[in-house]
Every structure is written in C-alpha cells, then in structure tokens.
Computed example of a mutant assay.
Amino acid sequence: MVIEEPSRRRRKRRLLPIVGLIGVLVVGFGLIYGSHWLLNPWVTVPGRPGLTGYWQGEVTVAPGDNRRVVLHLKGDPPNRCQNCPDIDGEAKVCGATQHTTYDVWGDPLNFRGTRFSLKIRPVREGPGRFLNRLDGEWDGDLIRADTEITVIDADGVARSTTSSDRPPDPPLRVELRRATAGDYRAAC
C-alpha cells in the first residue's frame, strides 16, 4: 500500500480546478466553432467543400476585353459581430491593360448558401472598368454569378451599366470553378 505525502495531495487538489477550467474552455470553443459549421453548411470544412475557398473564371467587361477572375471567399469566424457579413474575401481581375484587386463581402441568401449576394469594391480607385457586385448561385463545383460593370473615366466620372441616363445593359454572367491558393497567388 502506497501512502501519498500530504503535500502531493494538496498539489493535486490545487490543479483540479485549473484542469477543469481548461476542459470547460476546450468544450466551449468546440461547441461554438462546431455549431458555426453546422449552422453554416456553405463554409468549407476538411472533407466537405463549400462556397468558401478559391475560385477562378473569366468575365467579358467589354467586347473583346476578356479578363481572368480569381476569388477567395472566407467565412467570417463565429461571434465576430452581430451585423457583420457572413462572407468576406478578396478578388483579382486580370486584364491586358488593367489588373484590379477587390475587397469582397456579403451574405448567403439561403441556409445552404446555394444563393448569395456579394459586394465588391476595388482597393484602388482610378479610371477603368470595374465589377461592382456578384449575385449568384453555387452548386458545389461551379459558381454562376451576375455582375455589372462600372466605367470610371479619366476625369473621375463613373457610369454604371445600369445608370438611368441610358438603357441598362443586361447583367454579365461569370462562371467560376474551384481553384487553389496557388492559382490565386499566381494570377495577375
């Protein structure tokens, strides 16, 4: 029979609340993040691709002006803020004479995220042709999104394809397929 020393027993008793607190924190964070992925099935998790991730495709911004589009969508972490968008990210549109980087943010429009609406804003302003939104559908391996073009003249005047001073152009359709982080980094 082994008899523990009194000081050893006291140390064990002092460590028990600390170990218990660490256990509660681990379980709590597991529940918070686990419920985030369960309640947001459009978020990518290992073994299950989602709307979030890397995408690439092409858009025609003017006749004869086709540009490569790469998109990186991220699901916002749980508990960030009450009214923050559920999706954020960045995009690049690569053309022969103009390369543009965009901030992207928005929300899924249904529980599974198969429909979504994203706002898109160029990081740098200046003359050129720019995308100004992405409203689309996601079916697993393909994103189909409608977008509009804003043209900014050299004097800073902006015209949209839906401006009221002329008949609106039909929305442009963009099709994006899964890509990798390497594809995103190598673009432009």
Rank of each mutant, 00 (worst) to 15 (best):
V2C: 04
E4H: 12
R10C: 07
K12Y: 12
K12D: 10
K12R: 15
L15V: 12
P17T: 15
I18M: 14
G20Q: 15
I22S: 12
V24H: 13
V24Q: 13
V26M: 13
V27S: 11
V27N: 09
G28T: 14
I32L: 09
S35L: 10
S35G: 04
S35Q: 11
H36A: 14
P41E: 14
P41V: 15
W55K: 10
Q56I: 10
Q56F: 06
G57H: 10
G57Q: 11
G57V: 14
T60G: 06
A62V: 01
G64N: 04
R68G: 05
H72G: 02
H72S: 06
L73N: 02
L73V: 05
N79W: 12
R80H: 09
C81H: 08
Q82K: 06
C84V: 11
V93T: 03
G95K: 01
A96D: 12
Q98A: 00
H99C: 07
H99W: 08
H99L: 08
H99V: 14
G106D: 09
D107G: 01
P108D: 05
R112W: 11
G113L: 05
S117H: 09
L118A: 03
K119F: 09
V123I: 13
N132F: 10
N132D: 15
L134V: 04
D135E: 04
G140R: 08
D141P: 04
L142R: 13
L142K: 12
I143Q: 01
T147A: 01
E148Q: 12
I149M: 01
V151G: 01
I152S: 03
V157T: 08
A158W: 04
S160D: 05
D165N: 13
P167E: 14
P170V: 14
P171T: 09
R173M: 05
R173F: 02
A181W: 04
G182F: 06
A186D: 14
